[in-house]
Nucleic acid binder design. Structure first.
Lengths: 191, 191
DNA sequence: CAAAAAAGTTAACAAATGGTAAAAAAAGCT
DNA sequence: AGCTTTTTTTACCATTTGTTAACTTTTTTG
C-alpha cells in the first residue's frame, strides 16, 4: 500500500519527512464499505478519521424523521463526525457510504499519539482543519447570500462528478431545500 | 497585563506550562479600537489574530454594495480574516469594531514561530480551530433546517448580550435575511 | 440644540420555497 | 423478467422571505 493519494493530499499542507511517514504507515488501516454501509452510526462514539481513497460518503443526521445532509465528501478528503470525535460523546451525525468506498483509517488514539510526538503531524492536523473551516465559511456565505438556484449551479460547477453518484434528495438537503424544490429548479434551468 | 480572560479561554483547550506562557507574553500586543474602527480592511493582507478582551467585532464583506455579516464575535474569542491570513492574499473580509474594543493581538510571524517551536501552542491552534469548525457546522445545520424565525429566537437565547450592542441590520444579515424581514419577525414574536 | 445621517419599521406586492399528495421513473430484489 | 421499494417529478396551494418605497425613530455631528 503506497497511499499515493493521501500523500499528495497531505503534501498540500505540510512537507513531511521520511520519519514522519514511517510513524504513520503502521497505523493506517484500510476499510472497505459497501454502498449504504456505515462509517459512523447514530449514538456511537467516533473513534477514527477516514480519508476517502475511493467513493463518496455523506454526513447527515435525523431531524424529525428527515435526513439532513450536512456534507457530501468529495474524493480524497478527510472526514469524521467531529463533534463526537472531539468530545468523545455519542454522535448525532451519521456517516454512510453513498457508493462502494475504500477508506484509509486512522484511529483516534494513534492520531493523538502522532499529534503529541510528531510536531509535523500536529501541524498537518491544524492546517487541514483550517482549510475545512474556510470552506465551511464559504458555504455559510453562499447560504446567507445566494438563492437555492445559484447554490445549485455553483455545486454543478464545483463538483460535477458528485452528480453521477449521489441521489438528488441528498443534494437538495445539502443545499437547504426540499427535493421537490430541487426538482422545480432543475426543470427551469437550461444548460 | 495579566491576560486573565485569555488564559482562561486557552485553558479550555490545552494545559500550558509556565514556559509556554513565557514564550507568548512578549509578543502579545494590546490594540484599542474605537467603535467603527477597522481591525482588517478590505484588500489588506491579514497579518494578525485578535482575542476580543473587550467589545464586539463583526466580520463582513461587500456583496454588490450590501454588507454581508458573516460573524459577530462574542466576547473572549479569537478572530481574524482566516482566508487572507492563511494564504496571505488580500482580504475580501472586513473586520470592524461594533463597539469600543480592547484586543489582544499576536502577529502572524510570532504565532508561526510559536507553532513551530512550542508544540503546545501548535496544539492550542489546532484545538481552537477545531471548535470553531464545529460551531460553524452547527450554524450550517440551522441555516439548512430552520426558518429565520427559529434562528433568530435561538440567537436571542444563545447571545442575549449581543442585542444590547449590535445594530439589528447586522444581525439580520448574519441570519441570512433582510432587515425588513427581521423587523417583520420581531413584530410577530411575543415573549 | 438643530440638522443631517443612519437605523429601524411598515406596507403592498413579488418571488422563492415549503407542504401535501399523487404519479412517473428508476433502482433493487428474488 | 416481474414485483417491490425508492427516488424523482409534477401540481396546487400555503408560507416565508425579498423588493421597493415611504415613514418613523434613533444616533451622530457641527
Amino acid at each position: 500500500m503506497d497511499h499515493k493519494a493521501l500523500k499528495l493530499f497531505i503534501s498540500n499542507f505540510v512537507e513531511l519527512t521520511e520519519n514522519d511517514w514511517k510513524a504513520v504507515e503502521p497505523v493506517i488501516e484500510v476499510l472497505h464499505l459497501k454502498k449504504n454501509g456505515f462509517f459512523i452510526r447514530e449514538g456511537k462514539i467516533a473513534k477514527k478519521i477516514a480519508f476517502t481513497n475511493k467513493g463518496y460518503l455523506r454526513v447527515y443526521y435525523n431531524h424529525d424523521g428527515d435526513e439532513i445532509t450536512r456534507d457530501i465528501s468529495p474524493l480524497y478528503t478527510m472526514i469524521t463526525a467531529l463533534p463526537s470525535y472531539i468530545k468523545q460523546k455519542p454522535s448525532f451525525e451519521i456517516i454512510q457510504a453513498i457508493t462502494d468506498c475504500e477508506l484509509l483509517i486512522i484511529k483516534r488514539d494513534h492520531l493523538e499519539f502522532l499529534y503529541d510526538n510528531y510536531p509535523n503531524w500536529q501541524k498537518v492536523g491544524r492546517r487541514i482543519i483550517e482549510e475545512m473551516f474556510v470552506e465551511t465559511q464559504n458555504r455559510i456565505y453562499s447560504l446567507i447570500t445566494q438563492t437555492a438556484e445559484a447554490r445549485y449551479k455553483k455545486m454543478i460547477e464545483s463538483f460535477p462528478d458528485i452528480f453521477l453518484h449521489v441521489p438528488l434528495q441528498y443534494i437538495a438537503s445539502y443545499l437547504g431545500i426540499t427535493s421537490q424544490s430541487l426538482s422545480r429548479l432543475r426543470k427551469t434551468i437550461k444548460f
